[in-house]
Nucleic acid binder design. Structure first.
Lengths: 125, 125
DNA sequence: ATTACTTATGAGCACTTGTTCATATGTTGA
DNA sequence: TCAACATATGAACAAGTGCTCATAAGTAAT
């Protein structure tokens, strides 16, 4: 494939061997939809806060109400409640009402898998 | 186990059945170190941006230099370079110099696994 | 109905983050 | 050495985030 050169302006041109058009096509073919990319980023953003990570680790072990979460993590009820809302919106956890309490638990096992993969990465070498 | 009641002040007390002390102990036993929690959150924070996600999807397919990444994603060289630095610091990608170019590629397969797990989660139901 | 308890939520604030712009650093070839 | 290209980086700014505080909403028991 020919090198890509523009003659009339100052655009900088990188002529990495034959990569340009091929790459653009490859990207167009394999890159997920914009909305999926956005959703993926939003999901990982939820994991990207140590308070939420700590909440998830508690829920790995037990179904827990808001007040107990706050006590176990030594944080205010309000702070925990705000974070639970975010976790719930991402369908990572679910709440079950029982009288005055709402018990939270993991929504499914993806949470465990994702965190396990993350731990593997940071624990190597 | 007895309910927990304080008599002298207004502290609100949740008496979820027998959970308190057990939960605190459980958390102390199973919760990872503070530094690991922090590192985990930092790692997921890196995945929590759609520009970085897009960069990773390109690198799933090929080893690419900065300029081509910028072109493929229709972003400035500077923006891409800043993000590459973050990805490199998290050891998700690595760079290989070849003349004037620096070709970036995935550091290992954890990236693929983590993103695959994320996609599974958002694609269900 | 009133009180006490549990959870949710809105506003405000300090802090973080991603991009742009300008510029520096590094590499190659003439 | 100089010019051109490729990449990295610091400052600045807008936008987003997590906590606190005050308060609302929901539930149960008296």
């Amino acid at each position: 494939m020919a090198e890509k050169k523009l003659t009339n302006d100052n655009v900088e041109i990188c002529d990495c061997a034959d990569v340009h058009e091929n790459l653009v096509h490859l990207v167009e073919e394999t890159m997920p939809e914009e909305t999926e990319l956005y959703d993926l980023a939003e999901l990982f953003k939820v994991f990207g806060d140590s308070t939420r990570i700590r909440i998830l680790f508690v829920l790995f072990e037990a179904e827990v109400c808001v007040y107990d979460l706050a006590e176990a993590l030594n944080m205010t009820q309000s702070a925990i409640s705000h974070q639970l809302k975010i976790l719930k919106q991402s369908r990572l956890i679910k709440g079950r009402r029982e009288g005055k309490h709402i018990f939270y638990s993991l929504a499914d096992d993806h949470v465990r898998s994702i965190i396990a993969e993350g731990r593997e990465h940071i624990e190597e070498d």
